[in-house]
């Protein structure tokens, strides 16, 4: 649905996005993670035909972002939630959505239906005639998401949808995105929030001008650090340690207090046999746990590496 190849954007001497190559499938929720000024917003702006590319290729469906004629078609098929909600504060929620529905050429009857459906879904139908300026930040964000969906777009670009929101409002917005995910919308989500990305996205790309990593959250978590199995014992004996070292599936063993920290590629497959081996060596197992590297570990490591390059 979204495809880029060596997409690059420069502002004078500054490269905002460099050789970005990625593919987002239809119905996928793709998260774009990166620090400030990593090029996330610039990428979304290029994909929404708001700014031009310096070089490379980018397509939404069959349309090319650099063709004037295709840009109107792209804008019609994508929904865009910018970082700042940008609603008209002196107009009602209904009037805001109606205005955008008209610009997106949604027929009158359909437009009325969509506004009602979205505002009811977001729980603000009863306040549809209130001025947007009277709403809380979270509610404004919800109205802005409704605005992005008013024309039933095939692709939705969300730029920092929960930035500056309190935890409750953030949760409401995240729950709404999860609903959209169930409805198989293709969503391109820019975020700083690692937890959000992990919960919502099928795949994540980490961007620091260049794309440094891409994959499913669990793949990324495993990509840098092996998963670790921790065996808590009554006491760690030399016999137990030796038996574990001889166990083929274990790549390394570390002893910490009365725990053994083991590096393994496939703990689900090998842990039952490992437990039997330790018991056979006279070990008294209290319990077995897993130590996962988090998306945060991966993100911070990759970003630090990118900074030093």
């Amino acid at each position: 649905m979204i495809e880029t190849e060596n997409l690059t954007r420069k502002f004078g001497g500054l490269t905002a996005v460099e050789n970005l190559t990625l593919r987002v499938e239809e119905g996928e929720v793709f998260g774009f993670l990166g620090p400030n000024a990593a090029g996330k917003t610039t990428t979304v702006r290029m994909l929404c035909c708001l700014i031009s590319k310096t070089s490379g290729e980018a397509r939404i469906g069959d349309y090319h972002v650099d063709r004037e004629a295709d840009c109107l078609a792209i804008r019609k098929m994508v929904g865009f939630l910018p970082e700042n909600v940008g609603l008209y504060e002196n107009l009602s929620a209904y009037r805001n959505l109606d205005f955008y529905g008209k610009l997106y050429e949604v027929p009158d009857e359909k437009r009325r239906e969509n506004i009602e459906r979205l505002l009811k879904l977001l729980g603000i139908w009863d306040r549809r005639n209130d001025n947007v300026g009277d709403f809380s930040k979270g509610t404004k964000q919800k109205i802005a998401i409704a605005r992005a969906l008013i024309h039933e777009p095939k692709v939705l670009f969300l730029d920092e949808p929960t930035a500056n929101l309190d935890p409750e409002a953030s949760k409401t917005v995240r729950d709404f995105v999860l609903e959209l995910k169930k409805e198989k919308h293709t969503i391109f989500l820019n975020t700083h929030n690692l937890d959000e990305a992990e919960k919502l996205c099928d795949r994540i790309g980490i961007l620091k001008t260049r794309l440094i990593a891409v994959g499913a959250p669990t793949e990324l978590e495993r990509s840098l650090y092996n998963r670790k199995t921790i065996v808590h014992l009554q006491a760690v004996t030399a016999q137990v340690t030796e038996a574990v070292k001889q166990f083929n599936a274990v790549k390394s063993v570390r002893e910490v207090d009365n725990k053994l920290v083991l590096d393994m590629d496939h703990p689900e497959r090998d842990n039952p046999e490992l437990v039997r081996t330790i018991v056979a060596a006279g070990g008294d197992i209290q319990y077995v746990t897993e130590l996962k590297s988090t998306l945060e570990d991966v993100y911070l490591k990759l970003i630090r590496e990118a900074k030093t390059q």
Partner: peptide
């Protein structure tokens, strides 16, 4: 000031 230009520019208008 209302930062409403960006969503407006994202619509299918020239």
């Amino acid at each position: 000031l209302e930062k409403s230009l960006e969503p407006l520019l994202a619509t299918p208008t020239t």
